[in-house]
Design a protein around this nucleic acid. Structure first.
Length: 924
RNA sequence: GCUCCGAUGGUGGAAUGGUAGACACGAGGGACUUAAAAUCCCUUGACCAUUGCGGUUGUGCGGGUUCGAGUCCCGCUCGGAGCACCA
C-alpha cells in the first residue's frame, strides 16, 4: 500500500464526524484544559494559507494535552456581524444574513479539510438570536450597574438610587463622567428625566454626549481602536470628530484593574506593553491656580511634574475648555473667538498633519500658588480637552511642546535643572538636580527630580493647593453604531427617557428593512423597519451594537452553548473556568482583548463567572505574508525575459499568478493560457530553457496574484503536509512570507514515515525487540517533542521528527515498540496519517485516546569515563569525557588551552567534560 | 520623541554561556533510467590548501565580563512593532 493522502484524509475525517470523536463533556474525574482560537470573521474571499496558522498551532496543543490525559475544550465559531456583509448588502440588496451564512459554509468546509479536533457541536455565531440574547443581557446588566470606587467593583444602580434618596450625592464613591453635587431633597424634586440624566453619569452602560470618531463615508461612529492616524481601519476613509449622543461603556472605571490584571497573566511582554500604553496610567497632581483680579474662577490643571511649578511661565487652555469663556477679557474676545473658529473648521487629521504652533492670549493672568508670580493664560490646540482637566501649566524649559510654544510667542523660559542647556531645545528627561526652585515655603533646590516630584506633591496636598491624582488615557468605549448588521439594543424610549426591555422579552430580534442604507432623514437603517416599537408602541433604539459586543464573552458561551436559561451555567463555568491557551493575532491588542477583559471583570463582579481574567496564556501567531512572483516584459513587446537576463533589456516587472510558478520557475504553457493577452507570449529563457521569475514579499492579496489557497495545497499534498509545513516555516510568533517552495521536503518526510510501516504493499512492523540505538532515537524524540510543544517551538519539533525517522530508517527498525509510540508523538501534527497507521497496527480505538509516551532518560545517557589529568607529573584533575576517548587525548586537550590550564591550575580537582578538540563543559 | 522586539549562509531558520549554521529549501556533482519524472548517495558559510589529514576567518558595529560569548553587560548602526501634541 502506498501513502495516499486523499483516501486517508477523507476516510478519517468522515469517521471522526460519525463517531463524534472530538465531542467534549464536563468530566469531573479529569483535569480540564481550554484551548481557544480567535474566531474568524467569515469574509467573502475564503481562507488563504495564512489564516489556519494559529488554528493549526492550537490544534496541535489541544491534541497534545488530550494525549496527556486532559479533558480538552477546543471549540470554533464565527464573528458574524461586520461591515463587509452590510456593504455588500447595500450594493446588492441581498440580506447580510444570507451572505454571512454562505461565507460561514465555505469557511467550515475549508476548516474541516484541515482535520481540526474542534467540538463542532459547540459552534456558535454572534448573529444567532440564541447567542446575542446574552450580549443584550450583558448590556442590560451594565445599564443597571455603576462602579463603586471604594469597593472596587460594579454594584447595582439601585443601591446608588437609595443613597441619593437618603443623602444626595454626599459620600458617593462612584466612577462618573463629571462630579455632581446635590442633596437628597434636590434629588427627590428632580423630574424623571432629570433623574435619568443624573444616573447616566454613573451607569456602566450609559448615554452620553461625547466626542466621537464620525466616519461620513461609512455613515457610522467608530471606536478609538477602529481608527488609526485619522482614517478608518476598514476602508481607510477620513474620520472626523463630532459631538454625538451615544451609548458608551464605562471601561475607564476598570482602568486600574485592567492594568493590575496584566501582572497575573501569561502574555508576551510586547502585548502587555501595548495594553499598558493604551491604558496610559500617569501619576501626577491636580493643582489649583487662582486668577488675578477674578475671584470667581479657579483653574484646575493636571501635571505629572509638580516639581517644575517654579518654572511655570504661562498657562494653556484647550480650545474646548470651559475656562476659555470665563477668562477671556473683553479686549481679547474678538481675537480668541476668531482663533476658536479657525480650529473648529479643521478636522483632527488636519490639525495633526499641520503641526503648526498656534495660539492666542486670553488677556487673563493666573497666579503661581508658590511664587505668587503673575503668569499669562493662553489658548492653544496643542492642549487636549479630553485629557486631564483640559488645561495645563506650561514649563517650557522641560517640556518640548511648551518650549515650541514659548519660542513662537516669545515667552519666558526658566531652566530648573542644573547643567541643562535650554537655549536650543527643552530638557524633558526626568532626571538631574533641581535649581531655581526656591519658592519660599517649598525649596526644591539640590534635590534629584524624582525626590523633588515627591516632595512637591506632598506639599501641594498639605497646603490644599491641589491633590495627588492618577489619570488614564483609556477612554470609555463608544457602543452605538449607525448600522443595520449588528445586535439591536434592548432599549425603548418613553418621553425621551431610555428604558430597558424586560429580560423575558430578550432576545430582541433584528427587524427586516427594505434597504440597508440610512433613512432620508439621516436616521440609521433601523429607522426603515416597520413597527420598530414595543408592544405598548414606544419607539425602540435605532442604533445597533459594535463588532466587539458579540466577541466580548464568546469564550464563556462555548462552555455551555445551548443553555437558554443563562449565558453559562454555574456548573460549566466552575469546571471550564477560563481559557488556558488563547491563540490569535496582535491586531486585537487594544480592541477585543481590552473589551473582553473588561466584560469578564464586570461579569466577575456580578458573580456570574469565577475567574477575573478570561485568557490565562496568550500567544500571538505571526502574520503570513504573500510571496509575489514577477515576469519581466520587454517594453512595448509581448516578449518576457528571465530573471538572469532582465538587466540586458528595458523591462517592466509584472505580477504573475504564483500558482503557475513552481520554485520560481514559470510554467510557460500555463502562462500563455492565464490571460488572453499572453497567449502569444514569447520567452527569453535561461540557457537551460527555464524561465526564472523574480520575487518579493508583499501582503497576501488578490491584486498581487500571490494568494495561496489551502484547498489547493491539500488537494496536491494533503492536510497533514500542510499542517506540518505551516509549522515548519518558522517560529510561530514571527511574521513570515508564505513560500510553497519548501513543501516537498515535508511531504517527502511523510512518505518516508510511511515507508517505515509499509513497503511495496507489504506490512513491515513486527514484535521484535528494538535495538538500543532505536530506543535512543525514540527517547531523544520524546524528550525533544514534549519540550518543544510546551514551548510552542513547533518548527524544531518537525525537524526532530525528520531526524528520528531518518535514523530509524537507516537502522532498519521495524519494532512495534518503537513505531507505535512514534505515531502518538506525531499524531498532534499529522492526525490523519498517524490515525491510519495506528489502525493498521491493529488498534481499534482512536489514536487521540492513546497515552503520551514518557521519556526514559536511561536510553539517552552517553557512556562516559573519568580520566585523571596530570600536571607536572601529579594528578590534579578528574576529567569526565566520552568513554570512546583515550587517556592521552584527554590529557592533551585538557592542557592544550593554556588559559584553561592556568585557570584549572591550583584549583581543587573537579569534573571537566571534554569532547574531541576542546573542553566543552566544566561541571562545578 | 518615548517604549518594546529583533539583526546568524544563496533562502526559511537551529543552537540550557560550551564543537555556530540543526532541519529544510535552493545549488553543484554522481547512481538508476533509452529519456524524463520519482528515488537514492555525496558536496555546499567564506577564504586558502587540496592525490592525504588540514589551516585561517566568521553570528550588524565598537568595547567589556568570562578559561570560554551568537547567547550576559555598556555604547552605537540599521530594521520592525506599539503609543504619540496624553502635560
Amino acid at each position: 500500500m502506498e501513502y495516499n493522502h486523499r483516501d486517508i484524509e477523507s476516510r478519517w475525517q468522515q469517521q471522526w464526524k460519525k463517531d463524534n470523536t472530538y465531542k467534549t463533556e464536563i468530566d469531573n474525574s479529569r483535569k480540564k484544559y481550554y484551548v481557544l482560537d480567535m474566531f474568524p470573521y467569515p469574509s467573502g474571499a475564503g481562507l488563504h494559507v495564512g489564516h489556519p496558522l494559529g488554528y493549526i498551532a492550537s490544534d496541535i496543543y489541544s491534541r497534545f494535552k488530550r494525549l496527556q490525559g486532559f479533558n480538552v475544550l477546543h471549540p470554533m465559531g464565527y464573528d458574524a456581524y461586520g461591515l463587509p456583509a452590510e456593504q455588500y448588502a447595500i450594493q446588492t440588496g441581498q440580506h447580510p444574513e444570507k451572505t454571512t451564512n454562505d461565507n460561514i459554509k465555505r469557511y467550515k468546509e475549508q476548516l474541516e479539510k484541515i482535520g481540526f479536533c474542534y467540538d463542532w457541536s459547540r459552534e456558535l455565531r454572534t448573529c444567532d438570536p440564541g447567542y446575542y440574547k446574552w450580549t443584550q443581557w450583558a448590556f442590560e446588566r451594565m445599564f443597571e450597574s455603576y462602579y463603586d470606587t471604594k469597593l472596587n467593583k460594579a454594584m447595582p444602580i439601585k443601591s446608588l438610587i437609595e443613597h441619593f434618596e437618603k443623602e444626595g450625592s454626599k459620600g458617593v464613591n462612584a466612577a462618573s463622567g463629571r462630579e455632581l453635587t446635590f442633596t437628597a431633597d434636590e434629588w427627590k424634586q428632580m423630574s424623571e428625566k432629570e433623574q435619568s440624566d443624573v444616573l447616566m453619569n454613573y451607569r456602566l452602560a450609559y448615554l452620553g454626549n461625547t466626542m466621537v470618531n464620525w466616519c461620513p463615508a461609512l455613515g457610522t461612529v467608530l471606536a478609538n481602536d477602529e481608527v488609526s492616524e485619522g482614517v478608518s481601519l476598514r476602508g481607510g476613509y477620513p474620520v472626523e470628530q463630532k459631538l454625538m449622543y451615544q451609548w458608551c461603556l464605562r471601561v475607564s472605571a476598570y482602568a486600574q484593574r485592567l492594568l493590575d490584571g496584566l501582572e497575573t497573566i501569561d502574555w508576551t511582554p510586547s502585548l502587555k506593553e501595548t495594553q499598558r500604553n493604551w491604558i496610559g496610567r500617569s501619576e501626577g497632581a491636580e493643582m489649583k491656580f487662582k486668577v488675578d483680579g477674578n475671584d470667581d474662577v479657579v483653574m484646575e490643571i493636571f501635571t505629572t511634574r509638580a516639581d517644575t511649578v517654579m518654572g511655570v511661565t504661562f498657562m494653556v487652555l484647550a480650545p474646548e475648555s470651559k475656562y476659555v469663556d470665563q477668562l477671556t477679557t473683553p479686549e481679547q474676545r474678538a481675537e480668541v473667538d476668531e482663533y476658536i473658529n479657525s480650529i473648529k473648521h479643521k478636522t483632527e487629521r488636519e490639525r495633526m498633519i499641520e503641526k503648526k504652533v498656534t495660539g492666542v492670549f486670553t488677556g487673563s493672568y493666573a497666579i503661581n500658588p508658590l511664587t505668587g508670580k503673575k503668569i499669562p493664560v493662553w489658548v492653544s490646540d496643542y492642549v487636549l480637552a479630553g485629557y486631564g482637566t483640559g488645561a495645563i501649566m506650561a514649563v517650557p524649559a522641560h517640556d518640548s511642546r511648551d518650549y515650541a510654544f514659548a519660542k513662537k510667542f516669545n515667552l519666558e523660559i526658566i531652566p530648573l535643572i542644573e547643567g541643562a542647556d535650554v537655549s536650543e531645545e527643552s530638557f524633558d528627561a526626568k532626571s538631574g538636580i533641581m535649581m531655581n526652585s526656591n519658592g519660599g515655603e517649598l525649596n526644591l533646590n539640590g534635590l534629584e527630580v524624582k525626590d523633588a516630584i515627591k516632595k512637591a506633591k506632598e506639599f501641594v496636598e498639605e497646603k490644599g493647593i491641589g491633590k495627588v491624582k492618577v489619570n488614564y488615557r483609556l477612554r470609555d468605549a463608544i457602543f452605538s453604531r449607525q448600522r443595520y448588521w449588528g445586535e439591536p439594543f434592548p432599549v425603548y424610549y418613553k418621553e425621551g427617557i431610555p428604558h430597558l426591555l424586560s429580560e423575558d422579552k430578550l432576545p430582541l430580534l433584528l427587524p427586516e428593512v427594505d434597504k440597508y442604507l440610512p433613512t432620508e432623514t439621516g436616521e440609521p437603517p433601523l429607522g426603515r423597519a416597520k413597527n420598530w416599537v414595543t408592544e405598548e408602541g414606544y419607539p425602540l433604539e435605532l442604533c445597533t451594537m459594535p463588532g466587539f459586543a458579540g466577541s466580548s464573552a464568546y469564550y464563556l458561551r462555548y462552555m455551555d452553548p445551548h443553555n437558554s436559561e443563562a449565558l453559562v451555567s454555574k456548573e460549566a463555568d466552575e469546571y471550564w473556568r477560563n481559557v488556558d491557551l488563547y491563540i490569535g493575532g496582535t491586531e486585537h491588542a487594544t480592541g477585543h482583548l481590552i473589551y473582553s477583559r473588561f466584560w469578564n471583570k464586570f461579569l466577575y463582579d456580578l458573580g456570574v463567572v469565577v475567574e477575573e481574567e478570561p485568557f490565562k496564556k496568550l500567544i500571538n501567531q505571526g502574520m503570513i505574508q504573500g510571496r509575489s512572483n514577477f515576469v519581466y516584459r520587454i517594453k512595448d513587446t509581448n516578449t518576457f525575459v528571465t530573471l538572469g537576463k532582465k538587466d540586458e533589456y528595458d523591462v517592466t516587472p509584472i505580477h504573475v499568478d504564483v500558482n503557475i510558478v513552481s520554485n520560481d520557475v514559470l510554467d510557460q504553457e500555463a502562462f500563455k493560457k492565464w490571460r488572453p493577452e499572453y497567449a502569444t507570449a514569447e520567452f527569453i529563457t535561461e540557457d537551460d530553457g527555464r524561465y526564472v521569475c523574480g520575487w518579493a514579499v508583499e501582503k497576501m492579496s488578490k491584486s498581487m496574484f500571490n494568494v495561496v489557497n489551502p484547498d489547493d495545497i491539500i488537494e496536491k499534498y494533503g492536510a497533514d503536509t500542510l499542517r506540518l509545513y505551516e509549522m515548519f516555516l518558522g517560529p510561530l510568533e514571527q511574521s513570515k512570507p508564505w513560500d510553497t517552495n519548501g513543501i516537498d521536503g515535508v511531504n517527502r518526510f511523510l512518505r518516508k514515515l510511511w515507508g517505515l510501516y509499509w513497503k511495496g504493499g507489504e506490512w513491515l512492523v513486527d514484535d521484535s525487540e528494538p535495538s538500543k540505538e532505536s530506543l535512543k532515537s525514540l527517547h531523544k524524540l520524546i524528550k525533544k517533542v514534549t519540550q518543544d510543544i510546551e514551548n510552542f517551538s513547533y518548527n524544531t519539533s518537525v525537524a526532530a521528527f525528520m531526524i528520528c525517522v531518518g535514523e530509524l530508517a537507516s537502522q532498519k527498525c521495524h519494532s512495534r515498540k518503537v513505531l507505535e509510540p512514534l505515531l502518538i508523538l506525531l499524531a498532534p501534527f499529522a492526525p490523519h496519517i498517524t490515525e491510519q497507521l495506528w489502525h493498521d497496527l491493529g488498534n481499534t480505538t482512536t489514536i487521540c485516546d492513546a497515552q503520551w509516551p514518557e521519556c526514559n532518560e536511561e536510553y539517552l545517557v552517553e557512556d562516559t569515563k573519568t580520566y585523571p589529568v596530570q600536571v607536572n607529573g601529579k594528578v590534579r584533575y578528574n576529567v569526565v569525557a566520552p568513554a570512546s576517548a583515550t587517556q592521552a587525548e584527554v590529557q592533551e586537550i585538557a592542557l592544550s588551552n593554556e588559559a584553561a590550564a592556568k585557570w584549572l591550575d591550583g584549583k581543587e580537582p573537579r569534573k571537566v567534560i571534554v569532547v574531541p578538540g576542546r573542553i566543552v563543559n566544566i561541571v562545578l
